[in-house]
Structure formats: C-alpha cells, structure tokens
C-alpha cells in the first residue's frame, strides 16, 4: 500500500520530488518573516507560483493557517527537461498568542509574497498615560 503511493507520486512529478516518504501529504513549507510593532504583528511568507485566488488564510482557535495551491508553471504541451520548482502547494500554520484583534487582519499578495498584518486588540496595545 505504502509502496503503491510512492510510485504514483514519482510518476506524477516526473521522477523528481522533494516529498519525504515519512510525510503523508506533500506540501512546501513557505519561509516566513515575522515582526512585531507596537500595534500589530506582520508576517510575510514566500509563496512563488501561488495566486491571490488560490490562497486560503484561516484564523481558527488561536491558529493562523495558510494554504495555497500552485498553478501549472509550464504549458501542457511542453516537455519539462529539468524540474526544481515544486508545485505541490504551500501549507504552514502558526499559533497566535493572546491579544489579536480577529476582526482586524489585513492581507496582500505581491511578487509571490503573502503579507499578513494582524492588529493587536486595544487591550494589549501599549498605552501612554497622560499626566495632568
């Protein structure tokens, strides 16, 4: 059973794949940058080949999950002579701490990079106290 799966995968990907046989699913883990500002967290994920329409971004039970499919890179009639680019799609998930305003999340996809801005809820934002 296990062997059958592997064979099918090899054929589909033209004989070269990064897929580990120890993983059930074959996905690419996008590299991520995350920084924190006084009022938000900003994530950026490298997802070349993904499209805006093919990205799913979900915030559920304190986990932010990003999934994206990758369209075909070459014309159907073309013969691929060398394949290094993976087209298995992307998946990565992050646990979020407390204090994120779920209703206030911004996301954009440019140049193959997904940028997500998660604003902090007012309760955890640093606040300067005025002295009267």
């Amino acid at each position: 059973m296990e062997n059958k799966n592997m064979t099918a995968r090899v054929e589909k990907n033209g004989g070269s794949t990064l897929t580990s046989p120890y993983r059930q699913e074959s996905v690419t883990v996008p590299t991520a940058d995350i920084y924190e500002t006084p009022d938000a967290y900003v994530l950026s994920l490298d997802m070349p080949g993904a499209t805006k329409e093919g990205i799913s971004l979900k915030l559920d039970k304190g986990v932010l999950a990003v999934e994206a499919s990758v369209g075909s890179i070459h014309a159907e009639s073309a013969t691929v002579l060398r394949r290094e680019i993976r087209t298995t799609g992307y998946h990565r998930a992050f646990t979020l701490g407390e204090g994120i305003d779920r209703e206030n999340v911004d996301a954009k996809f440019e140049e193959g990079v997904l940028t997500v801005k998660l604003f902090k809820s007012p309760a955890v934002k640093p606040k300067e106290i005025q002295i009267h």
């Binding site: 070349p48 890179i73 990079v113």
Partner: peptide, 25 residues
C-alpha cells in the same frame, strides 16, 4: 533534480524553451 539557487525549471516545446525561476519578493 539539480541544485542551485534560485530554483529553476527548463521546459521545451516545439519552437521555444522556457526557463522558469522562483524569485519571490
């Protein structure tokens, strides 16, 4: 299959060869 950075694909069709390269950002 091959190694290098940035990663690339080479695909051939009748009249042309297309080189695709991953260059996010």
């Amino acid at each position: 299959a091959g190694s290098g950075y940035p990663r690339l694909d080479i695909a051939e069709s009748g009249d042309e060869t297309v080189i695709a390269m991953e260059l996010p950002g």
